[in-house]
C-alpha cells in the first residue's frame, strides 16, 4: 500500500473507531427514566422527526434562509458524494466519461457552497460571535476536501494530496463539530421520543 493511501486508511480506521466510541457512549448513558403517562406514541413520532418534520416548508431555519439552506443541502450532498468517491478510490475504481464530468461539476458547486457558508460566518457579526475556531476549521476542511476531490478527478496525479486531505479531515472529524455526523441522528431520535410521548408529533388531525 502506498504511504498516502496508508495514511488515509489509518485515519479512516481511527475516525470510525472514534465515531463508534461516541455512539456507544450515547447508548451507555441510556435513556432518561420517564415516569409520566404518555399521551402519544413514540414510533410514529420518531418517523415524523426524520421525515415530515424536516420539510423545509415547516422549518424557519430553511424557509427564512433559503440561499443558506440550499447551499447547506448542496454542501452536504457534496460531502456524501466525496465519501462515496473515497470508498471508490480506495477500491481502485475511478469514474470516467460523462459520469465523471457530472461529479466534477457537482463537487465544484458544493465547494463554492461550502466557501459561501464560510464567508458568511466570517462577515456576519452575529455568526462570528457564535463561532469558535473549530467552526472555521471544520468548514474549511470539508470544503477543501470537496475541491481536492474534484481536482483529483481532473488530474489523477493529485492522488497523494487527495489522500493527505482525506486523512486530515478524517482525523479531525471526531474532535470538533463534524461529529454531528453521529449526533444529528441521535438528536432527531430524541426529539421524536419527546414530542411523541407528549402527543405533539405527528400533529393530530382536527377533532383530536
Amino acid at each position: 500500500m502506498n504511504p498516502y493511501l496508508w495514511f488515509a486508511t489509518s485515519a479512516l480506521v481511527i475516525c470510525l473507531a472514534s465515531c463508534f466510541y461516541h455512539f456507544f457512549r450515547l447508548l451507555e448513558f441510556g435513556k432518561p427514566q420517564d415516569y409520566s403517562k404518555p399521551l402519544g406514541e413514540i414510533t410514529p413520532a420518531v418517523k415524523y422527526s426524520f421525515t415530515r418534520a424536516m420539510d423545509p416548508r415547516k422549518k424557519e431555519s430553511a424557509f427564512l434562509h433559503l440561499p443558506t439552506y440550499t447551499a447547506g443541502i448542496i454542501y452536504h450532498l457534496g460531502t456524501f458524494l466525496s465519501i462515496a468517491l473515497f470508498t471508490m478510490f480506495w477500491l481502485k475504481y475511478v469514474p470516467s466519461g460523462w459520469f465523471k464530468l457530472i461529479i466534477i461539476g457537482f463537487l465544484f458547486l458544493s465547494s463554492i457552497c461550502g466557501l459561501s457558508i464560510l464567508v458568511k460566518r466570517i462577515i456576519k457579526k452575529n455568526l462570528r460571535t457564535l463561532s469558535n475556531p473549530d467552526d472555521y476549521i471544520s468548514n474549511f476542511l470539508v470544503t477543501a476536501f470537496h475541491f481536492i476531490t474534484a481536482l483529483t478527478l481532473v488530474n489523477n496525479k493529485l492522488f497523494p494530496v487527495y489522500f493527505i486531505a482525506a486523512g486530515v479531515l478524517l482525523l479531525y472529524l471526531p474532535i470538533g463539530k463534524l461529529k454531528h455526523t453521529v449526533y444529528f441522528f441521535a438528536a432527531r431520535y430524541q426529539l421524536g421520543v419527546f414530542y411523541g410521548r407528549r402527543g405533539v408529533w405527528p400533529p393530530k388531525q382536527e377533532g383530536f
Binding site: F29, P32, S61, T68, K177, Y183, A187, Q190
Partner: peptide, 22 residues
C-alpha cells in the same frame, strides 16, 4: 446527571445560527 438525551443535545449544535428568527 448525564444521560443519553443530555449528552446528545450538548454535542449537537453546529452554530449555523439559523434558529435566530424563531
Amino acid at each position: 446527571g448525564m444521560d443519553g438525551k443530555l449528552f446528545t443535545h450538548l454535542n449537537s449544535c453546529v452554530h449555523c445560527g439559523l434558529c435566530a428568527e424563531s
